[in-house]
Computed example of a mutant assay.
Amino acid sequence: MLEIDPERTAESVMEFVRSYTENAGVKSVVIGLSGGLDSAVVTKLAALSLGKENVHALFMPELSTPLEDFEHVRLISSTFGVEYETIDISPLIHSIRKVYPHKMDEITLGNIKSRLRMLLWYGYSNLKSSLVCGCSNKTELLIGYFTKYGDGGSDFMPIGDLYKTQVYQLARYLEIPEPILNKAPSAGLWKGQTDEQELGISYEKLDKILYGLERKMPVNKIAALADVTEKEVLRIKEMRKVSQHKRNMPLIPKAGLRTIGLDWRSPVQGE
């Protein structure tokens, strides 16, 4: 059902990375390296596509970043031969909390952390004349489990059409180190946070629900497929609906012949 041919998928993604960067007139990419599975997979694919010397990885920890992430970033770097730079964003977070007039909850502060990282990715991409390569997967994108203009802010997303369980399949093919394969997925925005705990559902079940919604299956059949209640299917369906704005460019009222984001969606390739 959700099985992929990892070799063909890897080749397809790598060709996409090569052609997209070439058509954009750049030779390299900037990647936010977190120590997690998605950024490890994207880093490996980018290195295979463009050469490891053309992958500029940035690790941006702060006070709540687990020590495990530091270890896993070093492991990714040494395994793939990709160099990285570390920028501690704690002082930036402190400055924002100091000037912000309202008390921030964990989610608000977590989104600010994500957006700070995006600012630094793009500053670095200007310095290196590179594109910013995003690490979001299809599961996250469909339910809005990302920060708008944060980790969702990038020039392209190589694994954006792969569900999380498919990213795991691809990761095993790419020989991502076992410690990274086995760690609990986490956005790392506050201490102890894990994706599945926050979402209230496992990726295995979530992907089956989204797979069913993608194919416009009846709710009762999706519930049976994912071994969940119909109420849970409707909850995920609603998450997809209310997060639609996060997946689109800001809406533009149509006034001309072809409108950006509506009927003028050609990429950088020649028309």
Rank of each mutant, 00 (worst) to 15 (best):
E68C: 01
R240E: 07
G261S: 14
P6C: 06
V41P: 06
R97C: 15
I93G: 08
L75G: 00
K246W: 13
L251N: 06
A10N: 03
S19T: 12
H72Y: 09
G32V: 10
F80R: 02
S28G: 14
N111G: 11
M1P: 05
I260Q: 04
A255F: 09
L174S: 05
L131K: 07
S78H: 08
L210N: 12
T194I: 11
D161L: 12
T108K: 13
I4W: 13
S266K: 15
T65R: 08
I76S: 10
S95E: 14
T147W: 03
M60A: 08
V132C: 06
T65Y: 11
E3H: 11
S28C: 13
L170F: 11
T108V: 13
W264N: 12
Y20D: 03
P91H: 07
R215K: 13
M14K: 14
S114T: 05
Q269V: 15
T229S: 15
G212W: 07
S90A: 12
S34I: 03
K221F: 04
K128Q: 13
K148E: 14
E85C: 01
L181K: 11
G123F: 10
G261V: 14
R97E: 15
M118K: 03
K183I: 03
A226E: 05
F146A: 06
P158N: 09
D88N: 15
H72Q: 11
G188D: 02
I176P: 02
I252C: 04
S19Y: 03
K216I: 05
S243F: 11
T79M: 03
S64G: 01
S90E: 15
F70D: 10
P177H: 00
S90T: 15
P250C: 07
E238K: 14
E22I: 01
Y145K: 06
D161N: 15
I222Q: 00
E62G: 03
P66D: 04
P61L: 03
M1G: 12
R18A: 13
Y211K: 00
R258P: 01
Y163S: 11
F146W: 01
L141P: 00
T86S: 01
W264K: 13
I176V: 13
P267W: 10
T108I: 11
E238S: 09
I201R: 09
V73F: 02
I96H: 05
M249P: 03
E68S: 05
K164G: 01
L199K: 01
Q166N: 07
W190T: 04
V30G: 08
V268W: 08
F146Y: 11
R18N: 05
I89L: 11
T259D: 07
R172V: 09
R74G: 00
Y20H: 08
D195C: 04
L213H: 08
E175M: 05
Y168M: 02
R115L: 08
S78Y: 09
V268L: 14
V42Y: 07
N111H: 12
L189F: 08
